[in-house]
Amino acid sequence: MMTTIDIPNFRMSPVVDQVGVEERVARFTTRSIKKSSKLQALKLALNMIDLTTLEGKDTSGKVKQMCYKAAHMCDQLQDIPTVAAVCVYPNHVRTAKTALTGTGIKVASVATAFPSGNTTREVKLSDVRFAVDEGADEIDMVISRGEFLEGNYSFVFDEISSIKEVCGSSRLKVILETGELSTLDNIRRASDIAIYAGADFIKTSTGKIQPAATMPVTLVMLQAIKDYYYKTGKIVGMKPAGGISSSKLAIHYLVMVHETLGDKWLTNEWFRFGASSLANDILMQIAKEKYGTYQGKDYFSND
């Protein structure tokens, strides 16, 4: 059976009331997650992390160390899942891919002139093509925020869909860089553009701009995902990135995903945290649940 998906007029994207969003978020943060449900959430959150290094000083040595950590989060504790992926620049994809062979951990690569995205379409496409050829399972692209703020929505749409084509079987995460979009209405609109243009995931931030991920921003993006799912039955993933460094906050995010989109999104196939320091905080909490004592940082390896 043939169905068509109408591409909406993005100028007519649903409006968002910021105060209402904040109030909804406040409700998620008052959920009290204890005992078994907490342990389950901690492991789930750990398994959803994209362990990330995106620095000018990245070297293959650093990337290898991080990859080892990704596969051996804390060997002293039993039943600890791995993270979902590591996220690196394109020139470190091959290193990471090799280091993670056999672990099941994905390699994600930022591309498209990350983090500003200010270059030509040609350069962006070849950036993506290179990362894919190097073996990246996932591509984290940035949208052209300048074009978006000028109102050139079809430019932004076309750019995403052309990059999606180049991705082939690699999954595409589209970074909106919400910290530069100013309003929740803009964030909703950018989410709609990315989703309809073919994003497998939408992602809040590069981590290079403040504010990075926030719960209100993430909620608006989740609602865009939900509306698309209602219309098409297609699942789009969500990745808040940057600024999520505590287990408590990560659990708040999980509650939010859980009560907005439900069980189907509670897997690292459809939800990720872009974070690095979060992992050890989660491990400390898991250890606390196991041993009953509060933990110290020196007891958890930092790569």
Binding site: D17, V19, S182, T183
Partner: peptide
């Protein structure tokens, strides 16, 4: 004032910037 009803209206104030 005896013949007036007091109506109170609420509206959110966006909190950006």
């Amino acid at each position: 004032l005896d013949l007036q009803e007091i109506k109170t209206t609420w509206h959110p104030i966006e909190n950006i910037g």
